[in-house]
Amino acid sequence: MIANSVTRWSRRIGLAAAMAAAAVPSWAATDAQGGGGGGLPQLDATTYPTQIFWLIVSFILLYVIMSKVAIPRISDVLEERQERIEDDIETADRLRGEAEAVKAEYEKAVADARSEAHALVRKAMDEIAASHATAEAEAAKKTAETTKAAEARIAEQRTEALESLKSVASEAAAEATVKLTGIKVSDAKVGKAVEAAMQGGA
């Protein structure tokens, strides 16, 4: 890198000097009057003290301005900006978290409402079914009762009829026996015989 640049500048100086010589044949004369012994003004050592002095003065001045004012000011602004950006990112993160929480809450509320509605519907259906069942059972019970009562009455009447039939038969049998045989048979015997006959006939 160093060698490279050295060859580069020496080539450039050579080129420049050649061109200078071609273009301005009289430059040696003008140079002699102000060049401090000919050659490059940069090689005039009498100018060195003033240049070094003013270099030191201006560079120290610049260093003080830079380190006391400019650099703290720039780094302050940069830090401030960095902080601000971090703050903003933090706020954005927090807000996003909040939004997510709200969203979750909303979703939960929707789900709750849905399940509540579901439960209500189910409850109503259950109630309807229950009342339906009770009504049905009551109706069945009433029917059964009526049936039973009717059956009871039928049985009663039947027994009654049978009873009266028996007495009528016994009387008729006793009368018939007396007329046919002239033998008076006791009521008990007749009753027994009629019962036996009815049992066998039935």
Partner: peptide, 28 residues
């Protein structure tokens, strides 16, 4: 020693001034 103010010195001071003004005033 000759430490007279010269054209070279003028531009050194000028450079200091330009840098100083540029870096402080732009950030003001």
């Amino acid at each position: 020693m000759d430490i007279s103010f010269t054209n070279s010195a003028l531009f050194m001071i000028l450079a200091t001034f330009v840098v100083g003004v540029f870096l402080t005033q732009s950030m003001s």
